[in-house]
Computed example of a mutant assay.
Amino acid sequence: MSGPVGALVRAAGCVLWRRPPTPGDGPELCLVHRPRYDDWSFPKGKLKRGEDALDGALREVLEETGYRCVPGPGLPTARYMVGERPKEVRYWAAEAADGTFEPSNEVDRIAWLSTSDAQKRLTEDRDAWLVDVFVSTIQATGEFP
């Protein structure tokens, strides 16, 4: 379903997080490994025609990680080029709820990591930058000190 050269690709995703196993530690972030690109990123994907961005973000998290989540504050929108097409990815912070990961052709592994380890593992700098924004955003909401 490709559009004309230069047509905007709309996508959405979440910085999926969970409370740490050890009280007092910071949140753990979920990263997905995509074997097609051999990269680590946040769960995200293209929106379906007419799909609301938040609905699409929650759908993509469930499809890629197996986890339902509770959406929180919006995070900055990433804008970059993919080939000759501009791409826009809307992000939200989202706390993991129930779920179980099942490997697929699209995502073969997930990793729950501290924010600093996640920042190091992420393939793209634009994703690593989003970790800093996530941390300051949840600190502002009072979720974590």
Rank of each mutant, 00 (worst) to 15 (best):
F101N: 00
A57N: 09
R19F: 08
L62V: 09
V135G: 12
G99K: 04
D117R: 15
C30H: 15
W17H: 12
L122F: 02
V9W: 06
R126L: 01
R10T: 06
R49T: 06
P43N: 06
N105F: 08
V82S: 10
V9F: 05
A128S: 14
E63C: 02
V32S: 00
I110P: 12
G50S: 11
P76N: 03
W112N: 05
G24M: 07
L75S: 11
T137L: 01
K48V: 13
A53E: 10
V133A: 03
P43R: 14
V9Y: 03
D117L: 11
S2W: 11
A118E: 00
V82T: 15
G66H: 07
A118P: 02
D98Y: 02
V82K: 11
R85T: 00
E64S: 04
Y67L: 03
A118L: 02
Y91A: 08
D38N: 14
R79W: 00
G50R: 11
A11P: 09
A94R: 02
V9D: 05
W112Q: 09
S136K: 12
E102K: 01
F134W: 02
V135F: 06
L58E: 00
K48R: 13
P20T: 15
G24V: 01
A7I: 05
K46I: 13
V133C: 04
G50N: 11
D55W: 13
G99A: 01
R19K: 15
V15E: 04
L75A: 10
R18D: 04
A140C: 11
P21W: 03
A94S: 01
R19E: 15
P71T: 03
A111P: 00
M1I: 02
T22N: 12
F42N: 12
E63S: 07
T137A: 14
P4W: 10
D25Q: 15
L29S: 08
V133K: 06
L47S: 04
G6V: 13
W112A: 05
G24D: 05
R18S: 01
R34Y: 00
D52N: 15
G74N: 03
E124Y: 11
A118Q: 03
K46E: 15
L29F: 09
F134P: 08
L8Y: 00
I138W: 13
W40I: 12
S2G: 12
R85Y: 03
L75N: 07
E51F: 14
A53F: 05
A11M: 10
A97I: 03
E95S: 09
R79S: 05
Q139A: 13
A118G: 02
P103A: 06
